Computed example of a mutant assay.
Amino acid sequence: MQNILLTNDDGIQAQGINRLFDRLSRSYRVKMIAPEDDCSGKSQSLTLDRPIKVRQIDGHRFAVQGTPADCIQLGSAHLIDAKPDVVISGINHGANLGDDVLYSGTLGAAREGRHIAKLCMAVSLAGNHHFDTAVQVVCEILQRLERAAMPSVRLLNINVPDIPYEQLQGFKVCRLGERPIAEPAQPVQDPKGQTHWWLGRLAPGQGEDFEAIKNGYVAITPIKLDETDSAALAVVDSWIIK
């Protein structure tokens, strides 16, 4: 494993991605292609209604005026000279647990990366303080993957507790949990008296990955890319195909 493509959804200036870039660049050939601005919640959306501007910072870093998935598309086609072995999206500022994986730009970029890399990882810190812990976790996982000769797993969702590395309880491979529906949206009025809305806060979740983080474990979840409900194929066939 030599070539790593690094992206995120918090933007090119975010602390998480820059900490990770600095550390990985010591051991790997790393290209950073990240959004110019915060794209949290963009999932795997693409920019289809306008041209996309790219600002080259140096020979290894590019800022894209688009979404995280745009960054992967542009990187694979034009901005990198070697196909990446691994795509890493993160380190995200805040956890991506349970249903978060449906909305997360961090996960969206990692999913998009499946077209160009053997393995894609979405990495999130469950807070905004101990980024060094998450950086060390990524390095350890990469080392283990190298010893495993890059197994056939395609996408991993990795969440790291926001605690010092020495306080981690270990690693847990676990299923995604679930969040209830978000709190109700809140109306606000602008100076002209027009009503706008703030979406409600995410509700607390429950399930294996939530429990792992709560108890101080790194939560690792393999994500299935084929969303077909195979068990339902015959059921639907029975009432559609006549």
Rank of each mutant, 00 (worst) to 15 (best):
Q136D: 06
Q136T: 14
V138C: 04
C139Q: 12
C139L: 15
E140R: 01
E140A: 08
I141Q: 03
L142C: 02
L142G: 01
Q143R: 13
R144G: 11
L145S: 03
E146F: 00
E146S: 10
R147M: 12
A148I: 07
A149W: 03
A149Y: 02
A149N: 14
M150I: 11
M150H: 12
M150Y: 13
P151C: 08
P151S: 07
S152W: 03
V153G: 07
V153P: 07
L155I: 06
L155T: 06
L155H: 08
L156R: 05
L156A: 04
N159Q: 11
P161K: 07
P161S: 13
P161C: 12
D162C: 05
I163D: 00
P164H: 11
P164L: 10
P164V: 04
E166V: 13
Q169T: 08
G170P: 10
G170R: 08
G170S: 08
G170L: 04
G170M: 07
F171V: 12
F171K: 05
K172P: 08
K172G: 11
V173N: 13
V173L: 15
C174A: 11
R175T: 14
R175W: 03
R175G: 15
R175F: 10
L176A: 13
G177A: 02
G177W: 07
E178N: 14
E178H: 15
R179H: 09
R179I: 05
P180W: 05
P180A: 06
P180L: 05
I181D: 14
I181M: 15
I181N: 13
A185W: 10
Q186P: 00
Q186D: 02
P187H: 05
P187L: 03
V188P: 00
Q189K: 08
D190R: 00
D190I: 00
D190G: 00
K192V: 07
